[in-house]
Design a protein around this nucleic acid. Structure first.
Lengths: 179, 179
DNA sequence: GTCTATACGTAGATAGAC
DNA sequence: GTCTATCTACGTATAGAC
């Protein structure tokens, strides 16, 4: 992996762990095993690095969501498959964590790629919900169950609240559609 | 308000806005219009201040939740009333924001009062759900809808995702219980 | 491309005077 | 109780040599 790539990967890890405010250029360099000059040669600064990391996150998360949401099955089954995907819960959501950081939300350059990613998933979910004649607002409900599940799990120090939140939501959807 | 109280209130505001990592002792002092020496006279340091702020948050949020959850009405109505309470969405959840901060979750002293607060609400919700013979896991589902709603709203820069998430969840619950 | 030097401000306190 | 001084480390770069 090139030095440039290592810098982006380090930034991704650190942003996920510690958020934007909690991540320093120095920490990025050390984790990437790159020098100061090297980092500033490849990137204009911390914000530029974060932008590259967010872009990479969006690519990966989009590809993953596409897999489950376009699998065969009923709307309920596809949404359930997406909700149940293996995730490293206690590490937090790579995008969701950033959406809670004031320095991110205060900067349009950093916030909008995150907003666009959520917009994209919301759109995919709405299409699926429409197939089943389901309430379009449920797209945000399920997105929120996921994001909130991360929050509750991190607060509790274990993944159970996440699992319960997701399974409760799926059970509710199944019951509502079984009418 | 005493200097001590002003320090706690400033800390509460700053923690909600910027998180624990993003809040400095200096910023707390300036917002409280208190000097350095004054702050360290009343509190041992940043962590001590945060602890006082979290305790105060828990008291207020507990009182508020108690109001809606113990109002008259069916389980669905009481949960809906709680979910629909007026909130300053774009300022973030005073507790939820902290649960995403690594410095908080890494410290048992800071994390556990937050965990206990969520535990308490979860318990209240489960009692209500039991009355209606509803799935106990829905306690975390609704808690997550709320927390995730905050995340989505902040990412989007507007409150619509929060409202949609909440209303979608309530509609789903009503439909499932109407069987 | 990478390294070292330099810089100015902030973070998070401690010490002691008043 | 509050103030000012002081301290060490870190944050976030820029400059210029190699």
């Amino acid at each position: 992996m090139s030095t440039r790539d290592r810098l982006v990967e380090s930034t991704r890890e650190l942003l996920r762990e510690r958020g934007y405010t909690g991540t320093s250029p120095k920490a990025i360099q050390q984790r990437a095993d790159a020098g100061q000059g090297s980092m500033y040669h490849h990137f204009a600064g911390k914000q530029d690095l974060a932008l590259a990391a967010i872009t990479r996150n969006a690519e990966e998360l989009t590809a993953a969501a596409e897999r489950e949401l376009s699998s065969p099955g009923s709307p309920t089954e596809r949404i359930a498959a997406w909700l149940r995907r293996e995730r490293e819960i206690l590490r937090g959501c790579p995008m969701g964590v950033l959406a809670q950081d004031l320095e991110i939300i205060a900067s349009d350059a950093l916030r909008s790629p995150i907003a666009e990613h959520f917009d994209w998933i919301r759109g995919q979910l709405r299409e699926i919900l429409a197939e089943g004649d389901l309430d379009a607002r449920l797209a945000d409900t399920f997105l929120a169950v996921l994001q909130g599940g991360y929050v509750l799990a991190r607060a509790a120090g274990n993944t159970e609240p996440f699992t319960d939140a997701v399974e409760g939501a799926i059970a509710l959807l199944e019951r509502a559609t079984a009418v």
